[in-house]
Write a protein that binds this DNA or RNA. Structure first.
Length: 151
DNA sequence: GCCAACGTTGGC
DNA sequence: GCCAACGTTGGC
């Protein structure tokens, strides 16, 4: 079982939105490295830590779970979508995604400023200065430590 | 709003 | 293949 962090701007799609929807297609990822994680490495049942970015208190706000195999992101084919990619076609779509299911909202945000100064989390991608990768793997040890911060 | 860090594009 | 220019991300 793998662990991941997925970032989202809460004004665009928040943990509350996921709690309401219960399940969503993680569409709109247009970065190859992030896509590769979804397409090649994510498995049904993997845990995803849900991270709010570009907001008043950036940090981890809850958990979800990968609940589908990878498949084509159809927003890439839709000229009306802000995620439209004119270089993708139905036959050859550059972009794939997985579905994410809601698991739980944490009682409080695990703030970036807390995570970043925690020596037990050194090397965590999301705390790296200038990190822009919207999907990144989390080691078993880091995942356990993140959960322990809730106690 | 600022700006550092980064990924992508395109001329050469 | 290099690299400057550009656009975007995201913390602050």
């Amino acid at each position: 079982m793998n662990h991941w962090i997925i970032k989202s701007e809460p004004t665009s799609y928040s943990i509350d939105d996921l709690a309401r929807d219960r399940r969503t297609a993680w569409e709109g990822v247009r970065n190859y490295q992030a896509r590769n994680f979804m397409r090649d490495s994510m498995c049904v049942g993997d845990t995803v830590f849900f991270y709010h970015s570009n907001c008043a208190e950036p940090g981890i706000v809850g958990e979800g779970r990968v609940c589908s195999a990878p498949y084509d992101d159809k927003t890439a084919l839709d000229p009306q979508s802000k995620y439209y990619d004119p270089t993708s076609t139905k036959e050859k779509n550059r972009w794939q995604l997985v579905d994410v299911c809601y698991v739980r909202t944490y009682p409080h945000t695990l703030a970036l400023r807390t995570l970043a100064c925690d020596p037990a989390l050194s090397g965590l991608e999301v705390t790296r200065r200038g990190s822009r990768l919207s999907i990144s793997p989390v080691s078993e040890v880091h995942a356990g430590h993140i959960r322990s911060l809730l106690n």
